[in-house]
Simulated assay, not measured.
Amino acid sequence: MEQTYFSSNFRLGILGGGQLGKMMLYTTRKWDIQTYVMDDAETAPAFEGSTVFFVGDIMNYDAVMEMGEQVDVLTIEIENVNVQALQDLEDKGIAVSPSASVLNLIRNKSRQKEFYRSQNIPTSPFETYDSPKKDHGREFPFIWKSAEGGYDGKGVKVIRNQDDLKELPEQPCLYEDMIDFDLELAVIVARNASGEMKTYPVVEMEFHPEANQVEYVLCPARISDDISNKAREVALKVSEAFNHVGLLAVEMFLTKDGEILVNEVAPRPHNSGHYSIEGSMTDQFEQHIRCVCNLPLGDTESVISSVMVNLVGEENHTGDVIYDGIEEILSMPGVTPHIYGKKQTRPFRKMGHVTIVNKDINEARKIAEEVKKKIRVIAAE
C-alpha cells in the first residue's frame, strides 16, 4: 500500500523551528500533514504552525534521537544538527533528507570545497588548514572562512594584510582566492528520492556590504540565455554529485570572463528562493516537502518577475521589534511582506522579507529600493 501523507497518521519531522521551518509549515498545513518540530527556543517562529513542538537542542544526540524516532520522515531547516544522530536514525529505517552523509559533506566548508575539487566542479582556488597559517603563499586580499559554524555572513572575513591574520580564531578553516566577479548567482535544484530533478530559474543576488548578507534577490537574473543555461547545468552537476534528496541551493560567481564558479551550497530551502512564494508556480517550501516525501515535483517556472528584499534589524537597535513603515509598503501594488515572528530584534538579524512582483524585473528592482527606504526594523523605545 502506498504511503498516505494527507489527513493521516504520517508524521514529518523538522529539525529547527526558525523562519524556514515556519514557511515549510505553510504547505503542511495546506495539505493537512502532521509535523513534529524541534527547536531550543519555545517561542521559535515554527511553534504555532506545528502539530507537536519539542523544546530541545538539535545539536544534542539524545534529543534528536528521541524526536526522530517518533516520525516517518525527518528533514532539516538548518545544517547545524547532530549528524551522528541522523546517521543512527537512518540505520533504524527513518527516512532522513538530506542524508547524514550529504549533510556531513556540506556542513564543513573545507570538506565541501575538497569535494568540488574531487568531482571537477568549477570553484575558486583554495587551501584548507587545521588552523590559520601566516605562511600561506597567497596574495592579499583573500577570503578566510571558518570550516564549521559559519552562517549568514558569520565565519567569513576578507584578509587584507598580515595584521588581519592575527585576529583569526584557532580553528579549522580555508583560504580562498578573491574572485573578480560580475554577479553572484544562485540556482535551486529540487530532487526527490525517485531521482526526479528540476531547477528553478537563475537568480541574481546583491549583498549588504557590511553584514555580508543577501540584501536583494532578483528573479530572473539579468543575464544572457547562454549564461543562464550554463549556470543551471553546473547546478545540476553539483546536485548529481551530492546525490541528495530535497532542495539544494547552489550559490555561484559569474566571473568577468563569463565562467561559472560554485561558491557553496545549502541542502534546504534558502534565502535565494523566498521570491518563489509569490513568483513561482511552485514555491520552494512546497517543493522541499514534495522532495522529502517523494511526491511528484511541482512546476518551477516563474509566473512573474520578482525581487526579494531581506528585512533585517537596524544597527543600534536591540529589543522588542517594531516594523516601522509596514503600513506604507502594504499600500504599494505588488508588494507582500513576510514577518517571521521573532519578537526580539538585534542588528542584522533576519526578521522578515518583502517580495515585489512586476512584469518588468528592472521596475521591480526600483520598487524594491523604495521598499527598503520605507520600512525599518527597529526596537521599541
Rank of each mutant, 00 (worst) to 15 (best):
E69M: 13
G149Q: 10
N294S: 15
A147M: 04
V37D: 05
V321L: 03
I375C: 04
I106G: 03
V321R: 00
V189D: 08
E370A: 06
F242P: 14
K237M: 12
M281H: 15
I277A: 00
I179F: 06
A241S: 15
D57Q: 05
I339P: 08
N192L: 09
G319W: 00
Y5S: 08
S146K: 11
K113S: 07
E167I: 04
G56T: 06
G325V: 05
V158E: 03
G195D: 11
L254G: 09
Q344C: 00
P296T: 03
V187F: 04
G18M: 00
N271I: 05
S101N: 14
F140H: 10
E114W: 00
D32Q: 13
Y275M: 02
R191M: 03
I227W: 02
G56M: 05
H288A: 10
S124R: 03
G93S: 06
G13T: 13
K22H: 05
Y5T: 11
L168N: 08
E327N: 15
V321S: 01
P122Y: 02
K230M: 12
E314M: 13
P122M: 03
L165R: 06
K359Y: 02
R365Q: 03
C291G: 10
Y200H: 12
A100P: 15
M308C: 07
L218V: 08
C291E: 12
E210H: 01
E206F: 10
M67P: 02
E369W: 12
G258S: 10
F140V: 07
V158G: 02
E184K: 00
